[in-house]
């Protein structure tokens, strides 16, 4: 039933049995309902989100799978990082509930119409959502945890090579 999709949308074949379709975010529900009625792609297997901080967007890939489980279709929507909000797909796919909950916690994306967006894996998390690119893990760790002492004698190897070369030269010149 990939012909239906090829007729109506611009579909790219990324790999054997893997297709990609890029759409506007305001047409998301409309297009996904049409795809699930008119083609074999009836299941949602994953909502994958990528943070393209340099373009100021989140790219969400709704990965759909056919009834036969033999082809995958990635439907990509791009939304602004600042006012990130999308309609929920709860009415189309019940499994979207937990995936949206996960993304809400990790990226702070608001899914309009999903009222179950409470804590998923993190508890009492008050910082910015951790999978956003601006969240610096190392800075957070340095602020909240101590490193175990005893490893301060680590040498920078490049500086050490330079120092030893200079030293060797000096002793040669001294002679």
């Amino acid at each position: 039933m990939i012909e239906f999709l090829k007729k109506h949308y611009e579909i790219v074949e990324k790999a054997p049995r893997l297709y990609k379709l890029q759409i506007e975010s305001d047409k998301l529900v409309e297009i996904l309902s049409s795809v699930s009625i008119n083609s074999n792609f009836i299941t949602l297997s994953q909502i994958a989100c990528t943070d393209w901080i340099e373009d100021e967007v989140f790219a969400l890939n709704y990965i759909l799978t056919t009834k036969e489980r033999d082809k995958n279709l990635m439907v990509e929507v791009r939304i602004s990082r600042v006012h990130c909000s999308l309609p929920t797909l709860l009415n189309l796919y019940p499994q979207a509930q937990v995936m949206e909950r996960d993304l809400h916690e990790m990226y702070g994306i608001n899914f309009r119409g999903n009222d179950t967006l409470y804590d998923f894996a993190l508890e009492n998390w008050n910082e910015i959502p951790p999978l956003r690119r601006e969240f610096d893990t190392l800075a957070y760790v340095n602020e909240h945890f101590d490193f175990r002492i005893g490893r301060e004698d680590n040498k920078d190897v490049k500086a050490e090579v330079k120092r030893r070369k200079a030293q060797a030269k000096e002793s040669k010149d001294g002679k």
Partner: peptide
Amino acid sequence: RRMQVKGPSLIHGFT
């Protein structure tokens, strides 16, 4: 840039 895992448990464990 991004690697997202979808295991069988996510849907089985919740939905």
